[in-house]
Amino acid sequence: MSVLFILIIVSLTVAALFLVAFIWSVKNGQYEDAYTPSVRMLFDDELKQETKKSIK
């Protein structure tokens, strides 16, 4: 049963890491703008040089 002492301390440490990660992400401004990234991720990468020529 005494292994519980270690387990609880380990589990608390892991949980604390997530807390730190949360605080870091808030400080980093990750929740400031929840809209723009959803649009940004849909933009294509610069791979279609050919198609651009046709516009010219």
């Binding site: 609880i8 608390l12 949980a15 604390a16 997530f18 807390l19 949360f22 605080i23 808030v26 400080k27 929740y31 400031e32």
Partner: peptide, 23 residues
């Protein structure tokens, strides 16, 4: 600057609340 302290307070309270409940 944006005041984020309320979010930190909530985060920490939530973390402690969950763990205290568990224990």
């Amino acid at each position: 600057s944006v005041d984020r302290s309320l979010i930190f307070k909530l985060g920490i309270a939530g973390f402690c609340f969950g763990n205290i409940m568990l224990i």
